[in-house]
Design a protein around this nucleic acid. Structure first.
Length: 647
RNA sequence: GGGGGCGUAGUUAAGUUGGUUAUAACGUCUGCCUGUCACGCAGAAGGCCGAGGGUUCAAGUCCCUUCGCUCCCGCCA
């Protein structure tokens, strides 16, 4: 785990190092990470777990551990029966009384904060003898994920995980304080609520009192927070648990925590400014930090993703049209796929790696096919460029170079130049250098081009995105900083080709872009597809940290939205009737955002796994290995809940 | 729903083309050791090779099924 080193920086930023109120009544005097040379001579009582046992024959040591650190106990002056050491197994909890003593000069340990002292034990009490644990929390060898989850309480004894838990607690508190200082009110909304269609699958909860009916756990308190705006709450927030019964990922758990925010009488700028200040408070960022705004279209065009990682440059350029008449049929066929009402069009994208970053061997270049295989691509095409255009001597070789004639090549180079020109704003914010020109302004075109193509543009975008990140990793050009991004102007709808209907890209309460309202009411398929939303995402280092929108506050616009999504009058009435009615009694313009607290913590401690930031996480099949949950209901429960249970 | 990786002493791993008694490190146990801190030295115990079935004279190794963990695609408004 690289978390260990990385967490310190975040801890310094987030944690209040000094405990303000010391409450008396503990059975210890100091923690195991506290004693220093100034304590020498003091008689102290320490408590903790036995981390290590070292018996040198005539001299015995024990390292005692708690969440604050490690202290060496020496039994050199111990008057009692040393046979007690045989009873003190690893991970036992002991209490010792003794005097703090300086270590001999030759026995100082500079690697540990308490390494200049040791405690000469006078009394030792075994508070809780441990049997041999399945694994040692501080062992050199890491137990498997399965075992660590089954014995989560042992894994949590590890200082790194305890530090993350503390970091999480402090972060949550800072967020609360910040929002309250901005005039927000925290409101708790129900956990037992109502099923929401149009979203993720719900977790449902039956109840004894209502045969045949279920509550649903909230996927997000979306309608509730909007109702709070209608109810004159003005500025709402909540650190709330949300539930989604969908398949998991490394950054996704079935229950997760959201920083949920909603504000009345706002513009998008309010949310952006609020989030900008909040990120500045939480993260180590430059003092002149601003959230750069990127249009959704720009993100897709140059990065193939709505959450691009801008810790490195490597833009992608669209070169589809250049292969319309190519002799290379694989690319020509992709270029020939034109968009229809129900099908997307073919797309070919290219990424340039300048020679200064490095080169891939043919074997490594061929191996890139594994990276794009999940998206249905057979491989990544490539060619090399040597020499400079100024000298008039560019030479293309390898891969598909024989299909890249001088004319096509010139246009590819020109498009990279244009792309970097358009991205200049972001390049200067993030400190990226242009690769379409060298320092003298002369073209330096030496390097490798990688090309991905698929008849479905979405597959090309996704492949280009993973390829871009894989190349950045391969050439170690990912800089260590927080590349925040505010992506906006998302499309309002997504068209589902199989079902032949529109879905809300964000959710059905998102307002159409104020410049696109005519398109929204046009009843024209093409115009509706182009209609943008007043929606935005907070992105950092390739993660979607959160998203939000300005909401529809006009009842007829909301009804139009439901119609466009294909909901019948009946469905609207049953599922959203209360909400549509509420909109009719005077609704302020409002909007908000929701941030994933878990992902926020992941970024702060630079972990790439969400289980690291949750005390009791679930496996990727949504089970709890420790408690063996979920479990079968008892016969009594089945009867009481009026369930027909089939196996 | 689909695909990839992994599953071997308590733990982490090695195990060649299918071929004697399945190795090592840490942990455990026994003994020795006065400045260790990944202590050292000598020795011992410890195995349903995830489970079930098959191929074979012979299976940790090959095949099928299945379970668990993990990463990814779909999914996650």
């Amino acid at each position: 785990m690289s978390i260990n080193k990385n967490i310190n920086e975040s801890m310094d930023k987030i944690m209040d190092k000094n405990v303000k109120n010391v409450i008396n009544g503990l059975i210890r005097d100091y923690t195991c990470g506290q004693l220093r040379t100034q304590n020498i001579g003091e008689s102290v009582t320490l408590c903790g777990w036995v981390n290590k046992n070292r018996d040198l024959g005539g001299l015995q040591f024990i390292d005692i551990r708690d969440k604050y650190g490690l202290t060496q106990l020496s039994f050199a002056n111990y008057k009692g029966d040393l046979n007690i050491l045989k009873q003190i197994s690893l991970e036992s909890v002991i209490k010792v009384k003794g005097s703090v003593s300086a270590r001999p000069k030759e026995a100082l340990n500079t690697k540990m904060p308490t390494g200049e002292i040791e405690v000469l034990v006078e009394e030792v009490v075994i508070l809780s003898k441990a049997k041999e644990p399945p694994f040692l929390p501080n062992s050199m060898t890491q137990a498997t994920e399965e075992l660590k989850l089954k014995y989560r309480y042992l894994d949590l004894r590890n200082k790194n995980l305890q530090d993350i838990i503390t970091l999480r607690s402090n972060t949550a508190q800072k967020v609360r304080n910040f929002l309250i200082d901005c005039g927000f009110v925290e409101v708790e909304t129900p956990i037992l609520y109502k099923s929401t269609p149009e979203g993720a699958r719900d977790y449902v909860v039956p109840s004894r009192v209502h045969p045949g009916r279920v509550y649903a756990l909230p996927q997000s308190p979306q309608t509730l927070k909007q109702l709070l705006m209608i109810a004159n709450t003005d500025k709402y927030f909540q650190l709330c648990r949300c539930f989604r019964d969908e398949d998991l990922r490394a950054d996704r758990q079935p229950e997760f925590t959201q920083v949920d925010i909603e504000v009345s009488f706002l513009t998008q700028d309010y949310i952006k400014n609020l989030i900008e200040s909040m990120m500045k408070m939480l993260f180590t960022v430059p003092s002149n930090f601003v959230l750069p705004v990127m249009d959704y279209k720009v993100a897709m065009e140059y990065f193939g993703s709505d959450k691009p990682d801008l810790r490195f440059s490597l833009p992608q350029i669209n070169i589809t049209d250049l292969f319309a008449t190519s002799a290379f049929t694989n690319l020509q066929e992709v270029a020939a796929v034109v968009a229809t009402a129900s099908e997307g069009k073919g797309l070919i994208k290219a990424i340039f790696i300048p020679k200064s970053m490095g080169e891939l061997s043919r074997k490594d270049a061929d191996a890139l096919k594994d990276v794009v295989a999940p998206f249905g691509l057979n491989g990544v095409y490539y060619f090399k460029v040597a020499g400079t255009a100024i000298a008039g001597a560019t030479e293309r070789s390898g891969g598909i170079s024989k299909f890249i004639d001088g004319n096509i090549y010139q246009q590819i180079v020109e498009r990279l130049r244009k792309a970097e020109e358009e991205l200049q704003h972001f390049y200067s914010i993030f400190g990226h250098t242009n690769h379409s020109k060298n320092a003298n302004g002369a073209a330096s075109e030496e390097g490798m081009w990688f090309i991905v193509a698929h008849k479905n543009a979405d597959a090309t975008h996704a492949s280009a995105d993973v390829l871009r990140r894989a190349l950045a990793q391969k050439f170690s050009i990912i800089k260590d900083f927080y590349a925040f991004l505010w992506v906006n102007n998302f499309p309002l709808f997504e068209y589902d080709q199989k079902e032949g209907r529109f879905y809300a890209k964000h959710h059905p309460f998102t307002a159409p872009h104020h410049l696109d309202e005519e398109k929204f009411f046009s009843n024209d398929h093409k115009l509706l597809s182009e209609c943008r939303a007043e929606a935005y995402d907070l992105v950092c280092n390739g993660y979607e940290l959160g998203g939000g929108s300005l909401r529809i506050f006009n009842p007829s616009m909301q009804e139009k939205m439901f119609q466009l999504l294909g909901l019948s009058e009946e469905q609207i009435k049953n599922q959203f009737g209360f909400f549509v009615e509420a909109l009719q009694y005077g609704t302020p313009p409002h909007g908000g955002v929701a941030l994933g607290l878990d992902r926020l913590i992941m970024l702060l401690c630079k972990s790439d796994n969400i289980r690291d930031v949750i005390a009791f996480p679930k496996t990727t099949s949504a089970t709890d290995l420790m408690a063996q949950s979920p479990s079968a209901p008892s016969a009594a429960q089945i009867a009481e809940l009026h369930f027909k249970w089939e196996n």
